[in-house]
Design a protein around this nucleic acid. Structure first.
Lengths: 252, 252
DNA sequence: CTTGACCCTCACGTCACGAGAGACCGCAGG
DNA sequence: CCTGCGGTCTCTCGTGACGTGAGGGTCAAG
């Protein structure tokens, strides 16, 4: 059984033009055409469309979506798991925003006025500037610090979107291993640590194994980081720290 | 105290160009300029920007945002309440999507393949077509049914976005009244009912008080509708039905 | 008094489609 | 067999929300 553009458009809730566009840019080309040149969408085509729309809904560009979908060796289940992780991340984000709105309401009622910075915390963008002063004290003048500052300065909103979703994925990977009972020096845990390290290297600064271990310590010693991990699962901060150490050990 | 474009851009997490754009289209013009023509943003300007970014994040167009913000006679608290309602609606939506993904994962694992329609239910767009056949049986041939079909056929994705957010607002209004202990024939509850009726009239078909009452009955008798209301608050379906009846009573 | 970090105003580019034109396909009714 | 009529095709231009320079002024610090 195959479907025409109109039919597909109807139950996918998009316009025919959108499907034409996806065909034009090669994101979703129907696997067949009639002799008259009419597009015919097969079952797998619909699967792909569903994924396209899903990732689009979560703010990815069509180019990024193409990259995600054409990533080799990922099956349907992997996509579903990833989608679930992304949704969880989004829900957390919105919940935080809702909480921020609640405190803003309280502040409003009390007649307290917020500082400009506080106003925009609603968007909880993980602004490194917040910690800037303190980081300066601890890491000031180091290579890593300077590199991070230079690179993050030029990041666009889109970059940050990717960064935060990737960070959420990394956290979810740790949580999955932890909840599955994998020991901190188990392969799955160490792989998660390695992904985490790669993520930092890619977006912030060259994060070697020693530096990574330093970060791990911070996750259990600094309450703000600890809170982040512990709110996902109790004991996760310590687990992440141990996994990072184990990973550094096997690589060096 | 006032701020330069760069400063504002920095802690709002947008680019300078974006602020220029908002100035160009008159969405957010800084209340002052220096003698050299530099933009200077005041505290109230920041408030407005925060709102702009908030509604933008939730998918409203800049034109719609301008309309929302320039609506006369709405104070800060009203905005915060509205924002909170919108967030709740969004969270509900994402939670539903997450659940749909979960069932899709189960189906995948069981080796069950879904029908094309089922695939796109993830987006829970409240597609009236889903119920089309059954509605035809019950309401077939009626004016309301034909009208709804004609009108919804031409709705764009943007329309649906507005419709669903408005629907979420309506639901939240009922929930707020209910949780505040307002009786179903109290003013706040009846106002919510009236808003609900207006929403349907605006987007689907002329919904008179009699038809509205019919809908109210459906909310307690049809488990799919009931589930929607009951998942927000236990007893809400019955409450909504009663509020609709009370509202019809006072108007006729 | 220069240098570097900001700021200004055009003006054109981009992404993801929307809207319409003009022509073709295919089937039902007269 | 012709005629609508709804669906589809390609092509082109428009749009919203900015990105990305170009070319030039502004200003506190050294």
């Amino acid at each position: 059984m195959s479907y025409s553009v109109g039919q597909v458009a109807a139950f996918a809730g998009v316009t025919v033009r959108t499907l034409h566009h996806y065909d034009e840019i090669g994101l979703l080309s129907p696997s067949e055409r009639t002799h008259a040149g009419y597009r015919r969408y097969s079952e797998p085509d619909l699967d792909r469309l569903q994924r396209v729309l899903f990732y689009r809904e979560l703010g990815f560009s069509l180019e990024e979506i193409a990259a995600i979908l054409d990533e080799p060796g990922v099956d349907a289940l992997t996509h579903l798991r990833r989608q679930h992780e992304l949704l969880r991340g989004r829900i957390v984000r919105l919940t935080e925003m809702a909480e921020a709105v609640e405190t803003a309401m309280e502040a409003q009622i009390m007649g307290i006025s917020l500082t400009p910075q506080e106003r925009f915390e609603v968007f909880g963008d993980f602004r490194p500037e917040e910690y800037a002063e303190e980081v300066e004290e601890r890491w000031g003048g180091t290579d890593a610090f300077e590199q991070s500052r230079r690179r993050t300065a030029s990041y666009t909103k889109e970059n940050w979107l990717r960064i935060t979703t990737e960070a959420a994925e990394a956290l979810a990977a740790f949580a999955a291993a932890y909840e599955a009972g994998v020991p901190a020096d188990g392969e799955q845990a160490m792989d998660a640590a390695e992904r985490h390290r790669a993520h930092i290297s890619r977006w912030f600064y060259d994060c070697g194994y020693e530096i990574h271990k330093g970060l791990g310590e911070l996750y259990v010693s600094d309450p703000r980081f600890t809170a982040n991990y512990e709110s996902t699962a109790v004991g996760l901060a310590q687990y992440v720290r141990d996994a990072i150490h184990a990973n550094a050990g096997r690589r060096s």
